[in-house]
Computed example of a mutant assay.
Amino acid sequence: MSFFKSKNPALRSGTFTQAAVRNLSAEPSMTIEGTVNKIGFLTLLVFAGALFTWQMFHSATDPSVVQPYLIGGGITGLVLALIIIFKKTTAPYLAPLYCLAEGVALGGLSAFMNYIYPGIVLQAILLTMGILFSLLVVYRMGIIKVTERFKLIVVSATAGIALFYFISFIGGFFGFQIPLIHSSSTFGIIFSLVVVGIASLNLVLDFEFITEGAESNAPKYMEWYAAFGLMVTLIWLYIEILRLISKLRER
C-alpha cells in the first residue's frame, strides 16, 4: 500500500501518527465532538458567503454581476486548500477563510442555476444532506469497512476524475470539450452518477479520518483540518449533484 501512502497527502495513514508524536505533552487532543462543532461552524460560514452572492444575483438578475465573485472565490478557495493540505497547522486560521471563499463562489453558481432551473438548489442541498447522514449511519453501523484496499480504490477513482476535469479545463482554452461532463445524454448522466457515487464514498474516508484522529490523540488543530477535509468533500458533492439534477431537468 506504499502507493496510497505516497500519493495521498491529505488522507495518508501516517497523518495522525505523525501529529500524535508531536502531541506527547499535556496539550488538548482532538475529539470527535470538537470536530463536529467545527464542521457546524464552517458550514455556517459557507452559507454566509453563499447568501452574499445569492442576494447580489437576485438583486440584479444578471450573471455578469456575480461572475467575478464566482471565479475569485473559486480560485481563492483552491489556493487556501492547497496551503492547508501541505501545512496542516494553518487549518485553524485558513479553513474558515476557505469556507467563506467557497461559499461566495457557490452562492453565485447556485443562484444562476436556480434561475435556470427553479428549485434545483433546494433539491441539491437536500440530496447532499441526505447522502451525508445516510452514509454516516451506515459507517457507524459498521456496514462499510474502511480497509486500505477501499481507501486505495476511492482515492484512485477520485484522482482519475480530477485528471479528467483538468484535461477538460485545459481543453477549453483550445476549443476542446469533453461532452460527458456537461452533456445531458444518457452517457453524460451515467458519468455524473458515477462521480456523485465517488464523491459520496469520499465522505466515508472523511468519517474514518476523524475517528482515527480522535483515537490517535492528535493535536487540537487537527480538528480544524479534519473538518476542512469533510467540507471539501461536501462542497464537491453538492456541485456534482447540482450538475446531475441540471442534466436530468434539461432532458
Results as ranks from 00 to 15, higher is better:
86 F>S: 13
239 I>E: 02
175 G>M: 01
198 I>V: 15
12 R>M: 05
10 A>R: 11
197 G>R: 04
231 M>S: 08
19 A>V: 06
49 G>H: 06
236 W>H: 09
233 T>H: 02
187 F>T: 13
104 V>F: 12
118 P>H: 07
37 N>M: 15
57 F>G: 08
123 Q>A: 12
64 S>D: 12
236 W>S: 11
155 V>L: 13
119 G>M: 10
106 L>R: 09
162 A>S: 10
102 E>L: 15
132 L>Y: 11
65 V>S: 05
189 I>T: 13
93 Y>L: 14
63 P>E: 00
235 I>H: 07
141 M>T: 12
82 L>G: 09
113 M>R: 10
213 G>D: 08
230 L>R: 08
92 P>L: 03
161 I>W: 11
65 V>H: 02
78 L>T: 13
209 F>H: 14
78 L>Y: 09
190 I>G: 01
187 F>K: 07
143 I>D: 06
225 Y>Q: 08
190 I>A: 13
110 S>M: 13
24 L>P: 03
130 G>Q: 11
56 M>Y: 11
26 A>D: 14
26 A>S: 14
104 V>R: 04
142 G>V: 01
243 R>C: 04
142 G>F: 09
126 L>D: 01
30 M>K: 06
55 Q>L: 13
54 W>V: 00
23 N>E: 09
155 V>S: 15
26 A>I: 09
221 Y>G: 09
76 T>D: 01
234 L>F: 06
109 L>P: 00
155 V>D: 13
58 H>P: 01
188 G>E: 04
165 Y>N: 09
96 P>T: 02
42 L>R: 10
132 L>V: 05
67 Q>K: 14
16 F>Q: 06
131 I>L: 11
79 V>T: 13
48 A>P: 00
1 M>S: 07
223 E>H: 03
225 Y>D: 10
245 I>M: 08
193 L>K: 00
66 V>I: 11
33 E>G: 09
202 N>I: 01
222 M>Q: 05
1 M>I: 13
202 N>P: 06
32 I>L: 13
69 Y>W: 13
169 F>S: 09
139 Y>E: 03
241 I>H: 00
13 S>Y: 10
33 E>F: 15
159 A>E: 14
41 F>K: 14
73 G>W: 10
14 G>D: 14
128 T>R: 09
58 H>G: 04
119 G>L: 00
249 R>C: 04
87 K>E: 10
199 A>Q: 10
22 R>K: 07
223 E>L: 03
15 T>E: 06
89 T>N: 08
80 L>E: 04
113 M>C: 05
82 L>H: 12
53 T>Y: 06
15 T>G: 05
178 I>G: 01
201 L>A: 14
41 F>S: 11
105 A>T: 03
150 F>C: 03
203 L>W: 10
15 T>F: 12
210 I>E: 05
247 K>I: 03
193 L>D: 08
178 I>Y: 07
137 V>P: 00
19 A>K: 05
169 F>W: 11
173 F>I: 05
58 H>A: 00
71 I>P: 04
49 G>N: 01
219 P>F: 05
86 F>N: 15
108 G>P: 02
45 L>H: 10
80 L>Q: 02
83 I>L: 12
186 T>N: 11
121 V>D: 07
133 F>R: 07
